[in-house]
Write a protein that binds this DNA or RNA. Structure first.
Lengths: 342, 342
DNA sequence: TACTGCGACGAAAACGTTTTCGTGTTGAAA
DNA sequence: TTTCAACACGAAAACGTTTTCGTCGCAGTA
């Protein structure tokens, strides 16, 4: 176990100064060819790699970005990470992944850890608890300290920073319009509670589509779910004895619970009831019937977020700074849980 | 945008020396009470946080561990990460997540990045390509440099390091035994190619169970799949016209493809054919019929890996070092894709 | 008065780099 | 012989900490 080669050790070994070694390795013309070659050969032979930490300290930048997500056992977020990693690596950056577990405290803690020099900036999707609390002081602080921040998916309007979102309203609208085109008259909505931004927005889309097609909004057909755990029972309860022929669910789990309940009631999907979900996960693809969904393109969201952040990092802060919001388009993927259009 | 408070700035502001500030903040008795309180008040008011990078350089440890996984859009691996994060955070460590994308080159690259001072040690599950190549020089190098390494799930015997695995053989055996108990006579195996360690081991388990129950091994009933992409077609081809009443698949995707094929052939699951998968993912739980599977307890594997690594990190290397292999037990979760036992 | 001891603080090294600014040795021009 | 570039290299500061080892002043003691 050799304890890691440093410039100092090379210098001592070759009887030159540390600066000479450093310069030689960086191909400085200041160093004579003979010495340079000797040093480079030595370094190569003993596999010298400069110490990242020292470099970070010196350069005051770490070439590392952090991403904080609410949960990782979640298809959408993993695709986002995938996208972030891809772009980050291409541009020579490392990625620090942290989980907030949907907890406000953990989110704050994570940000503090990452902000103390470990990363140059971060990408964040807000924890559910944070959105509920509406407390964003940690974001403001980070920005004030000069840490660039990119919010994605679960964002909040009143923070001035770059954002990457999908057109949740349009996405929801598209889905419901499609149901209407398939001939559905009584369309139910299964959403999350309103403080989760995406739930609220998709609900907007649902309502818009109805209004524009002169269908009355019936609040009895709208279910808002707070806790993931109880969702299955709630959905069953909600759908019992309801005369619906279309269901729009804001994620794939709700959609599948809906299908199960519908089937248990002796009705058929899609013949009797059409169902559309949101987020294109493994479940949607492989369930029987496979789910028609609104795809979010998580990978692209990750890529865009990373690009946005790194651009900001590599620009001199003097250049006129403004904040962008990138909207990644959603796409309706039609499969077998909806009737074909009329 | 204030450019980050440092000890030096506090010192200048309060007209004391840097060392005094440092000591005061660490509650050294060397510093008079008055000065100490003054400094602490100032630091608190301006929210001073020590710079992590500088600390890392000084202490020669980063309090960070890296985890390299083959893919992240994958339920099992995300549960492992979850477990690692949990334990790491509890013990005051940060986690660096990197993806190898199942590529040998990316794996090597990632290790090099992490080894240059960014992390104190890492947790790794081998890329498919690496296992195929059988080239583990990067692991050996890392270990030689004194970087502790923990391998999990996809491991290789001839590397001396800590390991966390499941009893793949026993797991496979349990599954097949269960099928036998359910009355299955012709049990097919859908596995991966042999160089993926887990595929090979589960195949062993399959064979052992058959042998011990005096059932002849029929190589025609064994399918080894190389590419995930073509798996569905291959499985359909394989199962066509085969007289089987039980299927053991080494992951949930294969299991579900099998069920689909079986149903398309007009047979019923589990009445005509019982199916068991491996890995307890979202799909297994929610598919209809829900899948009987061998659960891997990814979360626990992550926890154990992190604990193993951190223990090694916090021990002085002088204490007699040996390597542990922790075997996390599998558990057969019975659901609706298998007949009830006779 | 001279010495000792202690309380309170500062100087400086160290971690591993990069970079600026010397500095000493050449060889050639004056 | 002197002078001056050019060349090849080294010393030292800096990044932000922690820690060891002074040092200074003052009170107490002999």
């Amino acid at each position: 176990m050799k304890p890691k080669l440093t410039l100092k050790k090379i210098a001592k070994e070759l009887d030159v100064s540390i600066s000479t070694v450093s310069k030689a390795l960086r191909d400085s013309p200041e160093i004579g060819e003979e010495t340079r070659e000797k040093i480079k050969a030595f370094a190569k032979h003993y596999n010298y790699k400069p110490n990242n930490i020292a470099l970070s300290l010196k350069n005051r930048k770490t070439k590392t970005i952090g991403i904080i997500i609410p949960e990782i056992v979640h298809h959408f977020f993993t695709t986002v990470i995938s996208g972030v990693e891809k772009v980050a690596n291409e541009m020579g950056y490392n990625v620090f992944v942290c989980l907030s577990d949907n907890s406000f405290d953990k989110e704050v803690l994570n940000m503090e850890m990452l902000a103390n020099g470990s990363t140059d900036g971060f990408i964040l999707s807000l924890a559910k608890e944070t959105m509920q609390k509406g407390d964003y002081h940690h974001l403001v602080e980070a920005i004030n300290q000069g840490m660039p921040l990119v919010l994605f998916d679960r964002v909040v309007d009143d923070i001035a920073c770059d954002k990457v979102i999908i057109d949740d309203v349009t996405g929801g609208k598209k889905a419901v319009e499609y149901l209407i085109e398939c001939g559905c008259k009584n369309i139910a909505l299964i959403s999350t509670v309103d403080y989760v931004s995406v739930g609220k927005l998709r609900t907007h889309g649902y309502k818009q589509a109805l209004v524009e097609n002169n269908i009355e909004i019936n609040e009895d057909l709208i279910l808002k779910i707070e806790e993931m755990e109880d969702s299955e029972a709630e959905i069953e309860q909600f759908l019992r004895n309801k005369k619906v022929d279309g269901v729009f669910a804001v994620n794939e789990h709700f959609a599948i619970s809906a299908i199960k309940t519908i089937q248990e009631q002796g009705k058929k999907v899609p013949e009797d009831v059409s169902v559309i979900g949101f987020t294109d996960g493994e479940l949607s693809k492989r369930f029987i019937p496979s789910l028609t969904t609104v795809s979010q393109h998580g990978m692209r969201m990750g890529e865009e977020s990373a690009r946005l952040l790194i651009e900001k990092l590599e620009r001199t802060p003097s250049e006129d700074d403004y904040y962008k919001t990138i909207i990644v388009e959603t796409e309706l993927v039609t499969r077998n849980s909806t009737k074909s259009k009329k």
